[in-house]
Design a protein around this nucleic acid. Structure first.
Lengths: 330, 330
DNA sequence: TTGAAAGCGCTAACAC
DNA sequence: GTGTTAGCGCTTTCAA
């Protein structure tokens, strides 16, 4: 910067002003400085500015796995939203394991990020104490009650209930569930399972515990395995609720291979509305959690917090939408 | 850091030494300092270190779109590989548009990244001049000949030829191609299309130009549209080569809807071996470009360059593998 | 093995 | 409108 200043015959401060779009500069000066910047190929050193300002313009996004389509699509949406605020996104993968989630959460970031968007899968009420409140943070997706941080939530309960009620309306009563996490009291798995159970109960249908199949990670492969186990039990079932789309798609694959007709023999529903569900065979009925909306809201909320707003924390629930497709509608 | 030093009764330099694992420190001193760090909840300010050292420990990864499964999976692999070297990854989305790719390439990064992994889709020979050589850079995926930077390449030619030869061995002669970029001389689309054409020619089969269908972005949706156009022409065809998996999966969807049997009427092949191809109906025959390998090699190469190695630039071609699945094998 | 002093490149505060 | 001064938190000499 000194070099640029010398080259343009001005002071470093003037160069700084030009770089930062400070308005009160004579046009001639600005032009001269810009020319020098160009001539010398000067690039501002962001670290230096960060050091001075204490802010980096980077926000963190902690998600389980980028290779899961839902999170890939979410990350895409977050990056776009952040971009509109001039922020850069740094992605951290947590691997969907509670211990690793906590590690990531508490990892010293060395003031590298100004704020954190955090999408926990297995964290819950008991872990609230861990939520380090010295960096601004917004929680994505998960509902943890009474926590001291902002949330932008998927409507897990509403969405799951809508999906289950859709199956009930089709006359299905033996609805299997894939992806439960037995013993887990909080987190997406238990919330969606709880909503499933209460939807059944509300409609006077017994909750068939023999039809709940665990899957730690919500991949196609684990959905496929769970479905194999389901079939192996010999239990009757006329529908499958995958707690997310990839589980459901794994199920579709196994059902097809075993000769089940979808939806005639078995109706299948997922959750997330990933792009793939529009092109699978059959196309998959699923709940759209409002990804783009969530990303937008979350970034805006975080920006507000980073700007120093310390009003009461907010909880925003994005509206869900049930998309009925071939896997339930023939 | 001053506070920690005072608290521990040592100098800042000693604290710095402890933080950086400098070996010649008396055990007692180290313990004392660590205790103080803990007591004060001290976090090193990375910006300050960066300013001094001129390095940030961050590498950039520029890819078209995170929501495309291939790039999600690639990014995942790169993050893991970078992690092993203690590096953090910053993802930039280019949107698979040549102009935006150039913009991203030349965007001033303000010394924020120590190096860049760059996965261009539409860039080619003519753009080599643009390759800013002042940050270490490794190109991913694409082959640009005679460029002055390192490459870790997909074996586009070998992989595509293997796929086409597989179709020829099945007796297919009317092989449609989805995803070509007419007029583009370089980039993945033209390389794969070229390999397809030469595989046909090698086997004495005429290249059916009436069966090449463009698709700018390689999504399921564009693959589906291209297939609709293909069917609408009334041309006969007995196989489809999607220039990537998502295109092929879009095609599968449309073929199925139109009552074509796969592979009996039409065999389908993709490229990338994304997870989804193992679970689609039918499962998709595809070329595995060696994603993990590519990520590993690329990060290692970049680390070497960042360490100042300025030997002749390298070109590494990752070995491909053809996975034959239901979409061609019944 | 540890400490003191200087400076990385920038900006905030204030002077001109 | 523009220049001067000081200091952000760390590491790099060099000295003790």
């Amino acid at each position: 910067m000194r070099d640029v200043a010398r080259h343009a015959g001005v002071s470093p401060k003037t160069v700084s002003n030009v770089m930062n779009g400070y308005p009160y500069i004579r046009e001639a000066t600005r032009t001269k400085v810009l020319a020098s910047i160009d001539a010398l190929g000067y690039q501002m050193n962001i670290s230096a500015r960060n050091l001075k300002s204490g802010r980096t313009g980077i926000i963190g996004l902690a998600i389980p796995e980028l290779s899961l389509p839902y999170f890939g699509e979410l990350a895409d949406a977050v990056i776009e939203a952040a971009d509109e605020h001039g922020l850069t996104v740094m992605i951290e993968q947590t691997g969907a394991d509670r211990d690793r989630e906590l590690t990531v959460l508490n990892r010293p970031r060395g003031h590298l990020v100004d704020g954190l968007l955090y999408s926990p899968l297995g964290l819950g009420q008991d872990d609230i104490g861990q939520l380090n409140t010295n960096t601004p943070m917004v929680l994505l997706g998960e509902r943890i009650f009474h926590s001291p941080v902002d949330h932008v939530m998927i409507d897990n309960v509403g969405g799951t209930k809508a999906a289950v009620e859709h199956l009930l309306q089709l006359g299905r009563r033996r609805i299997a569930v894939l992806g439960v996490h037995p013993g887990e009291k909080v987190g997406t798995a238990s919330i969606r399972y709880g909503a499933y159970a209460s939807a059944l109960t509300d409609h006077g249908v017994r909750v068939p515990e023999e039809l709940a199949f665990p899957a730690g990670r919500w991949h196609r492969s684990t959905g496929a395995e769970a479905t194999e186990r389901l079939i192996a039990t010999g239990e009757k079932f006329d529908a499958i609720l995958g707690l997310n789309d990839t589980l459901a798609l794994g199920a579709v694959r196994v059902l097809t291979r075993h000769g089940y007709r979808i939806p005639d023999d078995v109706a299948v529903v997922g959750f997330d509305n990933i792009d793939e569900t529009l092109y699978s065979t059959p196309t998959l009925t699923t709940v759209d959690p409002g990804r783009t909306q969530i990303a937008r809201n979350a970034v805006e909320l975080l920006v507000k917090r980073m700007a120093g707003d310390d009003s009461e924390h907010e909880e925003i629930v994005a509206p869900y939408q049930l998309h009925i497709r071939e896997s339930t509608a023939g």
